[in-house]
Every structure is written in C-alpha cells, then in structure tokens.
Design a protein around this nucleic acid. Structure first.
Lengths: 155, 155
DNA sequence: CCGTATCCATTCCGATACTG
DNA sequence: CAGTATCGGAATGGATACGG
C-alpha cells in the first residue's frame, strides 16, 4: 500500500534522473550502448543480467527517452536499441563515474586507459568541472551549494 | 538462496561503484553532504527518507569509504558524517548528473544556476570531457570504446 | 536529539519455462 | 534470436516503536 517515493517531481536536477538510472544495471546498459551495443542478446551476454530484468530496464530507459527502438538495421528481424540525444547526454556522467571508479576502486597497476573518443581516436583524459569564466575548479576545494533550490515548479 | 549480483569484482570501473551508489538515495545523501550536511536528522529532513533506510545507506557509504564518522564537532553528543577524499572525488559525477538532469528533466524556465563553487563563489558552468591533449570532446561525437576492458585482475 | 530494530509492502533480481 | 511470463528469494523502502 505504501508506494515507493518517486524522484520525478523533485525540485533537484540531481534527484529526477534517479528514477531512470538509480539502480544496479541501467548505467551498465548505457555503457554498453555507448560502446555500440544495440541488440538485446548482446546486452544480455555482456552484462550477465537475467533477461527479464534486462527487458524491464530497457523498457524503463525507453520510457524515459534515453533509448529508442528502431525496427531493424542489419537486416535482423528484430528491434535495436539506440541512444537518443538525451541518452548521449549521459556521456559526461559515465566518464566521471568511470574516472572515479578507476581512481578509487582499482589498484594502480590495475588501471589502464580504456576510454577512447570514437571520432578522434583519442583517449579521454578526465572530466573537468569549470566555472562560468572557464576557471578549473578543483574538487577538493569545491562544494555544491544550494543544489536543490529551484525558482519555479512547473511540475 | 540466490544472491543478488555484486559489481565489486567487475573488471569495469563503471561497474564497481554501483554497489556503493547504485540506488535511489545514496547520490542524494552525497549531494547534501557536499552542501555541508553532516547530521543524521539533517539528512533525514532534507531527503524525506525514512530513518531506517537512511541508516542503512549511511552505513553502506561509510563501509565503502565515501563517508566517515567523527565523534563530534559542534559539541553535539553524537556523530557527524563527513565526506572522505574518496567521497569528494564524486563531485564531478554529481555535477555531470545535475547538468544532465537540468537539461533533460526540467523545462527551460525551470532551470537556474544552482551550483556554486564554495571557495570562489563562482557558479559551475559545466562538466567537460577532454582528451589526453586537452582537446574538448563534444559528447555528441563521442562514444565510450572498450570501456570495460582491463589488463589485469587483482581482485 | 540520534539513531536502531521490527514489521510489512513493494520492488529488484535471478532462474527458468515459454511464445513468436 | 528476441523477448515475455511466472515464480521465489533478496533487497529496498515506509511507518513506527524502541533504546541511548
């Protein structure tokens, strides 16, 4: 009877996305999508997730406009899942998460460059947080202030 | 009997953090922590989450070394929760997520600058993904390639 | 005031069987 | 191959009662 709280109407732009990606699998699905994966079975094989969960997660991502489905592309008889523009907008999030994971979840000799820009063939160095005037803000000295405050509520 | 899959031993640096932050509340707790929140009740009041869940999530974040607890600071008789260096390393992730949320989950007139660098008093502009030579990689042209590949496995 | 423990409903996830 | 349906167990989350 007590429904789980949705963040979709929250005033904070950090909160709303959590309905779409705040779980154990969605970001990994999107990681594979950025790698070029489009097929249901390819996701399933890469992730090792059970198919019913993959089905639910894919539908949730489609419902949130992060992925869409196209009838076919390589002649296969089934759909393919593609990143929308909104979905591609998650790239900095994945890079930032990956950077953090590599720094704090792996031993030094375990770390390697594995992010490559597909267009230029360049490895991705890092995600940088910059202020309005372009100054680089070191995260050690930086904090989020009043992050949840909004001026209006159109929800 | 069938345990949920842990990503802690995954080879991918995007995957491992999901045990720590892959849920509906952890990133919001950390958002508040960046705002300066340290007390249990302050988190609870800000988030509206039930106290038992908050307790479990805080302990999970402490277990992952993202927060730590200090005996007291303002003379209060209880603990306070503080970001560790590892926790502060999540700042780019939160900024990137917030940027994406603001762009795709809010109407234009609903959006305002709410990220402020505490030290310089400057609004945070955006998160940028750059290559090794410092070139800015637009996320429209960019994809993650071989993101999950690791050279060694020291787990 | 600061949490923890308990109870319960919902959700997530894994295994598997099934349909097209 | 591409999913969906069903089942059971585990985890999440909400309401609330309880002890420090």
């Amino acid at each position: 009877m007590v429904k789980r709280t949705s963040h979709g109407a929250a005033r904070c732009p950090v909160a709303r996305p959590l309905d779409a990606i705040g779980d154990q699998w969605s970001l990994l699905i999107l990681r594979d999508a950025f790698e070029g994966t489009t097929r249901f079975s390819a996701f399933q094989k890469s992730l090792g997730v059970s198919r019913n969960i993959l089905s639910v997660r894919l539908r949730n991502l489609v419902d949130h406009g992060i992925l869409d489905t196209a009838p076919a592309a390589d002649g296969g008889a089934y759909q393919e899942y593609r990143l929308t523009e909104k979905g591609r907008g998650l790239f900095p999030v994945l890079v930032a998460l990956r950077q953090w994971g590599e720094t704090y979840f792996f031993a030094p000799e375990e770390s390697h460059v594995v992010l490559v820009d597909r267009k230029h063939g360049l490895p991705v160095r890092r995600v940088e947080v910059r202020s309005q005037d372009g100054r680089l803000l070191g995260h050690e000295d930086t904090a989020i202030s009043r992050i949840g405050e909004r001026s209006t509520d159109t929800t």
